[in-house]
Design a protein around this nucleic acid. Structure first.
Lengths: 375, 375
DNA sequence: GTGTCGGCCGTCTGCCGACAA
DNA sequence: TTGTCGGCAGACGGCCGACAC
C-alpha cells in the first residue's frame, strides 16, 4: 500500500517507516544521483526468497550511475514489512561527475520514539505489556495521577491507517506502566511473538503511531520474475528509460542504491590498503547503532565470472571480535570507515605490502583517470 | 515451498494443488509445446498487485512458441495460495508446427473430493463445522455407529505437510456430521472467514488431505521487478536460453501459457465470425463448471499500441445473461467454443457481414499461409 | 438435510499484586 | 526498574439440541 492513503501526515508516515526499517537504512533524496548495483539487488532477492538467481545475465557493468526519480515507502498488508519502490533513470556514462551540494538525507528519527522488543510475558496469555517508565513518559500522553490507579485509553495508528486501542495504566507493586485491554487483540492480529518489537511514536494528543518490526524477516514468495534483476537495468539503459525496483531493507542489511557522493568518496577518494584498520556501523538488538572494528585482509571480486571488476563486497576483512558468523567477511568500500593508523597502535601487518585495489571509475571500463573527475 | 518436501505423495500433492486451484486451471505437461503470452502475463501481474505495468516494453511479438521444460507446483506459506513456477524454452520461429500426439492433460480431480464454502456458523465462535452427509461419507473414514454419539479423530495434512486434528462426530437433532474439537484452531491459524472454502481429499485411512481456497485472493506485494515481464521473454529469445515465470491461477482466470494444440485449433483451424454464437466455461461458486452462452460482436486489439496484432482478448463478445460485469467483454479465441448455427435458432445478426479476423500464424509476422502448417 | 441460534458449562483470558533479578 | 509468576474472577470458547428453511 501507498503510505499517503493511510490518513497520516506524509512526514509522520516517513518517520514511522524509517523507525520500522531501522537506524542504518537511508533512502537517497528524490532528484539526487545514485549508484545502483544489480549485483547487490540480485543478492537481496536471493536472500529474501531463498532461491538462486538466474546465472544467464547479460554482459553488463556491475554498477550503474542513475538519477533517482521517485521513492514510494510501502508496507506489506499481511506482515507489515516495510519496503520501497525506487524509480531510477540511468544517466549516460558521459555525465560529468561534478558533485553539487545535493540535499543531505535528513535524520528521520523523531524524538518521541520508542521501540520495545517483546518479552515472553508481553506475548503470553497474561495479556498485558509492560512499558519502561522513561519510554512511557516520552511516547504516551501524561496520565492523570489524581485517579487511583491512573488509567487512560490510547489510540494508535499503524502504517496502514488501522487504529488500535489500548488501555494504559500505571499500577502494580512497584508501580509500572502497562498496556492492558486491547493488547492481546493487537498481538494476535499482527501475529507477534517474543523477540519481535513494537515501535511507538508520539506527535501529541491523538497522534500516536504504532509500528511492528519482526525478529525474523518473512520470506516472500519467490516471484520467478524477480530473479532477473540485471535485465531491468540493461533494458533501461538500452532504451534510455526509467525503471522501478523493490528494496526490502529488512531482507538484508546491505543497500544496493548508494548516493553518488558516498560512492565517490569511498571508491575514488580513499585509498584502501591491505592491513588498514576500519570501523563499520551495525544495528544492535536495542535498535541503536554500534561500531565494530576490523582490518582489511585483501581485495577481490565476489563473483569473478558474472560480475567481474565490481566493488560490491570487494573488500575482504577480519573482525576484532568474532561474532559467530554474524558479520560478513566481505564488505563494500562505502560501508566502512577507514581509521588513521596511529603510531601508538602498531599494525601487525606491514603497511609496506600496499596492494591497492585498482581505482575503478565512474563510469567503469572507460579508463579515465581520477583527475578527470571534477570533485 | 516445493510440494515434494511436504512428505505427501507426488500424485496426491498435485491433486490437492489442482483442487485448490479450481476445475478450470490446467498446467500443460512437461515437454509439451505451448504458446506464451507476455501480454496476458503482464495483465495478471497488474491484477494481482493493483499496479500498472511499465509501458516501456521492447518491440516484441505478443506471443511466443515455447517448449515447457518444467513446472513446480507451489503454495504460499502465509496464505496457502497456490501458484506455479513454469520454465519455458523459446523455440525458433522456424520450428515446424507439426502436432504429434502430445500427452493430454489428465484429469486431476480425485473421486473422494469435497469442497465446502464456509458459512457464518462455520467460522463463528460456536466452533464447529457441519459437513454435508454425502460429503462426509465420501471423504471421511466411516464412523463406528455402535457408539452414541459416534466419534473419531481425523488427521489431515495441508499442502505444507502440516497436520491438523479434528474431532468428527455425528449428533444433533436431526443428526448431522460435525467437525468440533480442533476446528477453531484451524480456522484461526488459516485466518478463514465466511465465504472461504476448505477442500478435503481422502485416499484411505491416515491419508486425508486438506486445502484452503479463499474467497478473496490475497494481493501480493508488488515486487516492482515483476512489472517487466516482457523483458524476460525478450532476453530468453536473444540468448536462446530458458526462463522461469510465476503463474498465480487464483489471481485471474485467464491462462497465459496455452498448449500449442489448443492455440492452433482455436486460431488457425476455426474461423470466428461476427455474429457467431459460442459458449464458454466458468467456475461456479460450488466449484463445478457451467457454460455461459454469448455472441461475437467484433474483433480488435486490446492494446493496439503496446501489443498490436495480438490474439489476447481479441474477441469482443456479448453475453446472453448479463451478470453485472462479472464476465469479461473481451475473450481470447481459445477460451470459447463456437456453436454451429442451427437454422432453428436464427441469429438476429446477419451472418453476411463476415468480418473475419486475419488468421495470424505461428510464428507471427512471417506471412506464412495456413497450408504451410502441417497439421 | 443443513444453517442459525439460545442455553449452558468449563476453560482460559486477562487483571491484580507479589516477588526477584 | 521491569520480567515472571500465582491467584482469581469473569468472559467467552465451544458442546449441545431446538428449531426453521
Amino acid at each position: 500500500m501507498r503510505l499517503s492513503s493511510s490518513g497520516l501526515g506524509r512526514l509522520q508516515e516517513e518517520e514511522l517507516w524509517h523507525a520500522c526499517a531501522g537506524p542504518l537504512v537511508s533512502l537517497p533524496p528524490v532528484g539526487s544521483r545514485v549508484v545502483y548495483f544489480p549485483q547487490g539487488h540480485s543478492e537481496q532477492v536471493a536472500a529474501s526468497t531463498h532461491t538462486v538467481t538466474d546465472g544467464a545475465l547479460p554482459s553488463f557493468p556491475p554498477h550503474l550511475l542513475c538519477q533517482l526519480h521517485n521513492v514510494s515507502m510501502l508496507a506489506d498488508e499481511e506482515t507489515d514489512e516495510v519496503y520501497a519502490h525506487i524509480t531510477l533513470q540511468a544517466l549516460s556514462p558521459q555525465s560529468d561527475l561534478c558533485l553539487p551540494t545535493e540535499p543531505g538525507t535528513r535524520s528521520k528519527h523523531p524524538t518521541n520514539y520508542f521501540r520495545k522488543t517483546l518479552t515472553a510475558s508481553d506475548t503470553s496469555t497474561h495479556g498485558c505489556c509492560s512499558i519502561p517508565r522513561r519510554a512511557a513518559e516520552k511516547v504516551f500522553p501524561p496520565l492523570d495521577f489524581s485517579r487511583d490507579p491512573p488509567v487512560q485509553e490510547l489510540i494508535a495508528k499503524d502504517l496502514h491507517g488501522n487504529q488500535w486501542k489500548f488501555r494504559h495504566t500505571f499500577r502494580g507493586q512497584p508501580k509500572r506502566h502497562l498496556l492492558t485491554i486491547g493488547w492481546t487483540l493487537f498481538v494476535n492480529a499482527k501475529r507477534l511473538v517474543a523477540g519481535d518489537s513494537v515501535i511507538f511514536i508520539w506527535y501529541g494528543y491523538s497522534e500516536l503511531l504504532l509500528g511492528v518490526r519482526r525478529a525474523h524477516c518473512p520470506q516472500r514468495v519467490a516471484s520467478a520474475d524477480a530473479l532477473h534483476v540485471g535485465l531491468l537495468a540493461a533494458h533501461a539503459v538500452a532504451t534510455n528509460s526509467s525503471f522501478t525496483l523493490s528494496y526490502f531493507p529488512r531482507a538484508s542489511p546491505s543497500e544496493f542504491v548508494i548516493p553518488l557522493s558516498k560512492y565517490v568518496k569511498a571508491v575514488l577518494r580513499s585509498r584502501l590498503l591491505v592491513g588498514m584498520r576500519f570501523r563499520m556501523l551495525f544495528e544492535t538488538s536495542e535498535s541503536s547503532v554500534r561500531r565494530y572494528m576490523g582490518k582489511i585482509i585483501g581485495f577481490g571480486d565476489l563473483d569473478p565470472v558474472r560480475w567481474p571488476n565490481s566493488h560490491w563486497r570487494s573488500v575482504k576483512v577480519s573482525w576484532d571480535e568474532h561474532a559467530g558468523g554474524e558479520r560478513q567477511f566481505r564488505v563494500s568500500p562505502w560501508e566502512i570507515e577507514p581509521l588513521p593508523t596511529f603510531p601508538m597502535y602498531p599494525s601487525p601487518f606491514p603497511l609496506g605490502m600496499k596492494h591497492s585495489w585498482p581505482a575503478a571509475l565512474l563510469p567503469c571500463h572507460h579508463g579515465e583517470e581520477d583527475d578527470n573527475v571534477d570533485l
